[in-house]
């Protein structure tokens, strides 16, 4: 199978277009265990370490991919595009502008046009045809994956599902062929359903903040006896919380999906992100939000103060931690989280 790799922040790339063109869409995640020196030839070390890791990944592995699409999420995606274009060896690299403003007619028309431009570019480059029927089939396949993730997610609160297992399931969804994902998630569903009940002593929380792109941070949460049973992360609920609606025009459906998904900090207006978190607390019978921010990830850092105030004003508990981009178990973070829980941070 041909691979179309994509670099976005949050969940900005419409995978269904790649699928309709016969590609496996693969989200570039970087590798936290690999030194960022290759990317640091081109990007200063005070720029987003996750984005630098993704560039390092691309510099090393672009030969495994047939093309790359970079979708506009935060500043580093659009400013980084030129650097990727200059240094990453790949026969096809495409820029997809994604609106920052959500919900307006002009933004909808613009995003639709940008997807049409992408479709034409793929058709031209790879001599493929991307019909509406193929797009509708891709949307259905995508929804099959999302529906399974929704089922899996629900088990987090009742079964013994370590944070890493949930993360791994979500990563499969954005890195494997969707038919394989469906099979893998069906097996996972069977496995998780048979697992013991939610372990005593572990705390259920809502997890929010920057994109988490490596499983080691999820281990850090487990080490602090925390289980994220709800979240609004891009490799998480943002990806599957809403299904892509069925519409006559599949691009209209993708626009509607884009505007309806849990809002990342990179978009305007921003307040539905807070609403999503509050609803997650209410729906899950939870009382705590854990917010984490990878170093230099500015959009989420900006929102932290407001979200903390809002969540606390509603009577919920909230803690914010900043993390390095590192696979090492963060003992300081564990201490802080444990202390937070000890003083009455979250419901068991």
């Amino acid at each position: 199978m041909k691979v179309l790799a994509y670099f976005d922040s949050s969940h900005d790339f419409p995978e269904e277009i790649a699928m309709a063109a016969g590609f496996v869409p693969v989200k570039i995640l970087g590798d936290v265990k690999v030194d960022n020196a290759p990317a640091d030839q081109y990007l200063q070390n005070f720029l987003c370490p996750a984005a630098r890791s993704m560039l390092t990944d691309a510099l090393a592995h672009s030969g495994n991919w047939d093309g790359i699409v970079i979708a506009h999420g935060c500043d580093i995606t659009h400013r980084g595009f030129d650097i990727w274009k200059k240094h990453v060896k790949i026969p096809f690299i495409h820029w997809l502008n994604v609106p920052m403003v959500y919900g307006t007619a002009s933004a909808a028309a613009f995003f639709k046009k940008e997807m049409e431009v992408l479709i034409k570019a793929l058709e031209r480059q790879f001599k493929v045809s991307i019909s509406n029927d193929k797009l509708k089939a891709a949307i259905k396949e995508s929804n099959d994956v999302k529906a399974r993730l929704q089922q899996l997610s629900a088990l987090r609160a009742t079964k013994d599902v370590p944070n890493r297992d949930y993360f791994d399931a979500c990563v499969k969804a954005v890195t494997l062929a969707k038919a394989d994902v469906v099979k893998a998630l069906d097996a996972t569903l069977k496995d998780w359903s048979a697992r013991p009940a939610f372990p005593a002593g572990k705390k259920r929380v809502v997890l929010t903040g920057s994109d988490i792109t490596y499983p080691e941070f999820m281990d850090t949460l487990d080490a602090a006896n925390i289980r994220a049973v709800r979240d609004d992360l891009s490799i998480g609920e943002r990806y599957y919380a809403t299904l892509i609606p069925e519409k006559n025009d599949p691009l209209d459906a993708l626009v509607a999906y884009k505007f309806a998904m849990p809002r990342p900090s990179t978009k305007n207006p921003p307040d539905s992100r807070t609403e999503y978190l509050i609803n997650a607390l209410k729906d899950g019978g939870l009382d705590t939000v854990i917010s984490q921010n990878v170093k230099f990830c500015e959009p989420y850092l900006f929102d932290t103060v407001h979200i903390e105030k809002t969540i606390k004003a509603k009577g919920y508990k909230y803690i914010h931690i900043e993390r390095e981009f590192s696979p090492v178990k963060d003992a300081q973070a564990i201490n802080r989280l444990e202390a937070f829980l000890e003083i009455g941070g979250a419901k068991a």
């Binding site: 506009h72 502008n97 920052m100």
Partner: peptide
Amino acid sequence: YFCFDIPSAVSGTDDPRMDEYIDY
């Protein structure tokens, strides 16, 4: 608050694409 969402004209942006951005 009003946000003007300005498309990013990255390296290689051609005239038709620029026209599309201008429309927005």
